[in-house]
Design a protein around this nucleic acid. Structure first.
Lengths: 248, 248
DNA sequence: GGTGTTTATCGTCAGCCAGACGACTATGAT
DNA sequence: ATCATAGTCGTCTGGCTGACGATAAACACC
């Protein structure tokens, strides 16, 4: 590492951006906020903000999440909170010199997976934050409706991360309420992958994987039909063998 | 995103650090450089340096790689160079406020996978850069021989990324010369995972996966024994089903 | 020229697992 | 009572993996 020469290496602004995903009404949705000021004023963007001088990156992401959505992050160091709060992980860092027209900004994107929640709040302005199906931002090549900055790319990367990660980890349970049924978990996979899964094979797979699901003893009929067993997420985090995403 | 208030959000220095991995003499090795100045003067560290004012993150990583090792990066936009040059991808970003005692530094770590090469050069001082087996830095809990800053953690994350990525991608070929045999590829897997693999099952798996290997028609006896067919990396990047890492 | 060593490659067999799908169960709606 | 809905248990088959035997083609050595 070379000596620090401020004239040769001007300082950068560092931000965190959040890809907050949830499953609502059978579809994978992302949280976006409407920008109140230039650049991209009035356009939708990912929530995010500047990292404070003495703040860790993950802490900054967690703080922005609370500020913009009221969501709590699940702390891995506090296992008693398992099932409550959202999953947060670092996604990647975006530092194209032109990505922000105002100045050189390096943004550390984070991925948040949350269960379905009541409408988000954003600084009291309910109209400035909303959930939208991810296809809204992924499908179109045109400018219409696309996100500010390079946020469409960040969102696409976050969605792909989520899609691949539920294959080989138990992370899909982060989209569920603390207690959930096999069917609810299956609908999570179906929404995230955008495919239909065989209920019988799915049931066999998830109940047969040790440590994935822990029965709570209760049952529910909230989905209609025959009552279903309730489960909690088990301790296993890695699925081996993985859940296979069906071929296209 | 909030307005930029320089007093509330002091600027950060942004660096890139490189986890450069190769396979030499049956073991997974990482490139380290000896620090010539404080802090951690005389200690080994990952190669890296400051990102320039108008430089993309990946470009900064590629530049540092050339400067410190002479290695060329394989450009995905130039497929004719396939097989030559190293693979580079972003690994993760490390921004603990205390990670550098001098100032607030956010480091974007990158992972580089390279074929075995002649001894590295580092600014003309051959003694200040070297390959060491990754266990040198991963095994010990004590201070003795450990890397500067949080580089031991970054290296550990890079090694884990490499270990998991060769499971489901054809990235192991990045450790090989442009033309290689099935046995050479198997020894890459064995070195990266630190396990022994059955040569017959491995051969069946890699030659049976469409797009993984393309025979060049030539053969070689450079490993001794019966001549082996030479292959080039095929177009496939994702292996489905993956190579399974043996259980412990 | 044999003989042993090394590495590559082909085959066989059993077990596990996933996809396809039939059958039955337990609830609420009509 | 009947139907629709959703959950759960089984069966069968094909593909893939791990274990391992057998053969092939080079080299080293005597």
């Amino acid at each position: 590492m070379s000596p620090y020469d401020p004239s040769a290496y001007p300082p950068f602004a560092v931000t965190v951006d959040l890809v907050v995903l949830t499953v609502r009404r059978h579809s994978l949705c992302a949280l976006t906020v409407r920008r109140g000021e230039p650049p991209f004023q009035g356009r939708w963007a990912l929530p995010g903000g500047f990292v404070k001088a003495d703040e860790d990156l993950a802490a900054a992401a967690a703080r922005e999440l609370v500020e913009e959505t009221g969501l709590c992050v699940h702390d891995p160091a506090a296992p008693e909170s398992a099932g409550n709060g959202a999953h947060l992980e670092q996604l990647g860092t975006y530092g194209d010199p032109q990505r922000d027209p105002r100045m050189r900004v390096v943004s550390v994107a984070h991925l948040v997976l949350a269960p379905d929640l009541p409408a988000p709040r954003a600084g009291g302005d309910a109209n400035s934050a909303r959930w939208s199906p991810v296809e809204t931002f992924l499908d179109q090549d045109g400018e219409q409706g696309s996100l500010a900055f390079d946020h469409a790319q960040i969102l696409a990367d976050g969605v792909e991360r989520a899609r691949s990660k539920i294959e080989y980890s138990s992370l899909a349970t982060a989209f569920c309420t603390p207690e959930f049924t096999v069917g609810e978990l299956r609908r999570v996979y179906e929404a995230v992958w955008g495919v239909a899964l065989d209920p019988r094979n799915f049931h066999r797979k998830v109940t047969g994987t040790p440590g994935f699901l822990v029965p709570t003893g209760g049952t529910t009929t909230r989905q209609g039909g025959r009552p279903a067993q309730l489960f909690r997420a088990g301790g296993a985090t890695l699925l081996n063998p993985p859940m296979l995403r069906p071929e296209v």
